[in-house]
């Protein structure tokens, strides 16, 4: 019986065939050149299910080289089973080094979080995208949303926001809060919490977004304006944790996840970014 290592050498480097990777890179360049614009691409099927990060993974696989160091997180965690599964696939088909430390990574593939540690110009953030079309909730036809983007006609979204405010006195968009990219394209930033949205504005790093099932690649290049949809009198708000602290590392200025203790029913909070939590603990000498 072949070992996993031997077996996987029967596949091409980074799984995809070279012409496929080249096509993805070309589409990525186009995406970088037109910030926020969804570039259609063919999208190959991967050994990971559609809707489980195949858009992000195709970006990672097309960019990766021997000098790279990859970090994969799912909802902030390196240890989430899907993150592990994606990381294993990258490693098995490329042998590149992998890490859980945000600072050590050159490519960070993430589902639904931007790390708490500020990223640098040397790093690329790859976000997995389930629904790339920010207008989909107000217009089901792709044919029509393409026209709306062409005409920069985002009235339906402004109306949605206005109706939320009239009805509920604030915006109901939770994660994946729609943003305007450099004053031109409305963009779905992927289901990152609103907490992470401001990190995209005038960032020093490149963010690539890949939707495998919907076959779209788009990008936020460094130093691009990314502004959430908001009215002057109803400004965009991030999630509130009412000054709660992580029960593990004590951090307060981070995105927290709440959990209920099954024995006493008490609610406690923990950092969603597990690598950050570990780092803070290490610095305190607490691990």
């Amino acid at each position: 019986m072949k070992t996993a290592q031997e077996h996987n050498q029967s596949y091409n480097y980074a799984f995809l065939d070279e012409p496929s990777k080249r096509e993805i890179r070309r589409k990525t360049l186009k995406a970088v050149a037109i910030p926020g614009y969804q570039v259609p691409f063919a999208s190959r099927e991967l050994p990971i299910a559609r809707g489980w990060g195949t858009g992000g993974l195709q970006l990672t696989l097309s960019l990766i080289g021997d000098d790279d160091c990859v970090k994969v997180i799912d909802q902030g965690s390196d240890d989430s089973v899907n993150a592990v599964s994606i990381r294993n696939l990258v490693q098995e088909t490329t042998n590149v080094s992998v890490t859980t430390q945000t600072e050590a990574a050159t490519i960070i593939q993430s589902r639904h979080r931007i790390p708490e540690v500020p990223l640098t110009p040397e790093q690329v953030l790859v976000l997995q995208v389930p629904k790339p079309e920010p207008l989909r909730n107000v217009e089901s036809s792709e044919k029509r949303t393409r026209i709306q983007h062409g005409e920069k006609n985002y009235n339906a979204m402004w109306l949605e926001l206005y109706e939320d405010i009239v009805k509920w006195d604030h915006a109901l968009f939770d994660a994946d809060y729609p943003v305007m990219v450099h004053g031109r394209y409305l963009m779905a930033p992927s289901p990152i919490p609103r907490w992470d949205t401001p990190k995209l504005h005038q960032s020093s790093f490149l963010t690539l977004l890949g939707a495998g099932r919907e076959k779209k690649i788009y990008a936020v290049p460094p130093y691009t304006d990314v502004e959430p949809l908001q009215f002057d009198d109803y400004p965009f708000q991030v999630e509130s944790f009412n000054s709660k602290a992580c029960t593990r590392c004590g951090s307060t200025d981070v995105f927290l996840e709440e959990n209920t203790d099954e024995t006493n029913g008490e609610v406690h909070y923990q950092c969603s970014d597990t690598a950050y939590c570990n780092k803070v603990l290490d610095e305190k000498g607490g691990r």
Binding site: E45, A49, G76, L172, P193, E239, F255, L256, E257, E258
Partner: peptide, 25 residues
């Protein structure tokens, strides 16, 4: 089949962050 199956099944993945954002709202 591959796309529909993948997306329907992805609901099995954790949605802790997005759900936390919904709870906030």
């Amino acid at each position: 089949s591959i796309e529909a199956n993948g997306f329907v099944s992805h609901l099995k993945l954790p949605h802790y962050v997005t759900f936390q954002s919904k709870l906030d709202r």
